[in-house]
Amino acid sequence: MKRSTFLTSLLAFALVTACDKKSDSSSAGNSSDGKKLTIALLPKSKGNQYFATVEKGARAAAAELGVELIYDGPTNTDPAKQNEIVEGWVNYGVNVIAAACENREGISGALKAAQEKGIKIVTYDSDTTPDARSFFVNQATAQGIGETLMDTAAKLCGEEGEFAIITATLTAANMTEWRKNIEARLAAKYPKMKLVTTKPCDDQKDKAQAEATNILNAYPNLKCIMAICSPAVPGAAEAVKQAGKAGVVKVLGLGLPSENRQYVKDGVTQAVILWKVEDLGYLTIQAAVAAAKGTLKTGDKTFTSGKLGAMEIQDTDIILGKPFVFTKENIDQFQF
């Protein structure tokens, strides 16, 4: 009996390998046979409003250009998931992969293997190592984000005093990069400011609120909370509001205008930093298609992308524009 189950599972395995044949090579990396191009868009995580907005812009561009768009990404915090999805796409036979890399070095091996199969790689949002992709649609580098956050915080605090950071998880690779750049900027330019603590919130608004409450309590001289993952910004703001310290302790962070509008208007949150997210998705697909068709080549200085017009290219970075600081005055102009 037991042997029979073991045998059947071996049989199943044999079945898989028996009907094994070589990859359908016509579909991989071949863009000039008149078939529709297939572009695969990889977010850092799914079910997240930021990337849902990116997807919206991407779908608009895909419809405009008449290409097929595949959108898939990790639904949990398994660090291997992005690699697995990329490897699945290589086998599926997409023409271009546009990836927002959770893990700069971790994913580069999978992307290089895709390149070897003739698939074009474009990165957006956060880059991989430069040898693993053709172009990076750059809305902000880790350095740019870190410096903008630190400079804005310094301006809000008058360049002195204590501040704290709330991050998603301690292990999140891109946030670790940002924290490094924040700390480098702090050491270089703002000697009178002090980072007292960094707390994780697991991408949970409620946990961010709890941690911010703890921080406010434990560090009474705190002047500013910097929230570097989007759910943490409203979470920290609610904690400051409940503590009755609105305006006394400043709140700033990376987040979406729609999630922070009320707090910004009420003067609890002073600054929300972000870029035009929908445009990022739109530009990424435009660049991906152009790279596959060969109209966008290394060495180009500008790139004309549909409704966005001419975009500057520095080296292999297509520049979307600088991060944007949303404040009380301008937040109502943005609906995402």
Partner: peptide, 10 residues
């Protein structure tokens, strides 16, 4: 709070 996060039960 004035908003609901869909993953609030994780």
């Amino acid at each position: 709070s004035p908003q609901v996060q869909p993953t609030c039960g994780a």
